[in-house]
């Protein structure tokens, strides 16, 4: 903030509809410290510490494998555990990110009532700290690929960063939106887990889309950014044909979610301290 020194600024009732990117950049260290705190606190008092990051996805994969494999009519080139895991790597990131970010403003109301900084730092750092878990899950996933000797088309591995980017944009959008709504309506505390649970089953994470699935059902499913994110993530391992329009719908839904979510956040952030 040395840069802010000697600069004249005005505080008034008017509100601009754009984020002050320069100010956000000035607060990058606070953003780092908030993320660092969330990661540190999460594993500080647990006996197994970082091992939990390994265990969480592994257990989820095992549960889905044993419970759903019998019921589902699964037919694909990919072994089912790898298929589920490939969906959960990004889904868990999205789910934890939205959940952390959605609750972040209310759980840190004591800070926002006492000091000023760009409020966006709070939900953003909540999403990024969830990304830390995702990177570890990704590492285990790569090990799993070797273990099951899954052929990977390395020429399209650049789909992975694209998939992560879509997940990030979607979690930031949804997280900001929900966190701003929760400041105003505490009901969203109960809405978030319900929403995430529903979305887990509405996204082809634990089951594949088969040619038998109705086209209308697939379009409804595609109105969800995680549809494209997970599809992109699986592309290097699955050699399915890409339904371009479906993916486009999904990516657009992600961008819209980001714009609406951060826009709503920006519009309401100045009054957080009065409401929280």
């Amino acid at each position: 903030m040395e840069t802010a020194s000697k600069r004249e600024y005005v505080i008034g009732p008017d509100n601009t509809s754009f984020f002050n990117w320069k100010e956000l950049w000035d607060y990058r260290e606070l953003f780092y410290f908030f993320t660092w705190r969330d990661v540190k606190v999460k594993y500080k008092q647990t006996a197994l510490g970082l091992i939990w990051v390994f265990l969480q996805p592994v257990f989820m994969v095992l549960i889905f494998t044993f419970s759903l494999r019998m019921v589902l009519n699964y037919e694909s080139s990919l072994p089912y555990p790898v298929f589920v895991f490939s969906g959960l790597v990004l889904w868990n990131f999205f789910s934890a990110g939205v959940n952390n970010a959605g609750n972040s403003m209310v759980s840190q109301s004591n800070i926002i009532k006492k000091i000023y900084f760009p409020r966006l730092v709070i939900p953003l750092s909540a999403v990024i700290s969830a990304g830390f878990d995702m990177l570890i899950a990704l590492l285990i996933f790569i090990i799993t690929l070797f273990f099951f000797q899954v052929p990977v088309n390395l020429s399209v591995v650049y789909y992975w960063p694209a998939a992560i980017l879509i997940t990030l944009i979607a979690s930031v959008g949804a997280g900001c939106w929900l966190s701003a709504l929760m400041v105003k309506y505490r009901d969203f505390r109960y809405v978030i887990p319900f929403l995430l649970q529903a979305l887990l089953f509405l996204t082809p994470i634990i089951y594949p889309i088969t040619p038998r699935t109705s086209i209308w059902v697939t379009y409804v499913m595609a109105m969800n950014p995680m549809f494209a994110a997970i599809w992109f993530f699986r592309t290097p391992m699955m050699f399915d044909t890409t339904p371009n329009t479906l993916l486009l719908v999904s990516v657009i839904s992600g961008v819209l979610l980001f714009l609406i979510g951060t826009g709503y956040f920006k519009r309401t952030e100045r009054y957080f301290a009065d409401l929280a």
Partner: peptide, 24 residues
């Protein structure tokens, strides 16, 4: 922390506020 409903403030320096000790 909270915006004014009317009026304005012109500030010409780096400001720090201490409304509570040990915030965060």
């Amino acid at each position: 922390i909270t915006p004014p409903t009317r009026g304005r403030i012109i500030s010409r320096g780096r400001m720090a506020s201490l409304l509570e000790v040990g915030t965060g």
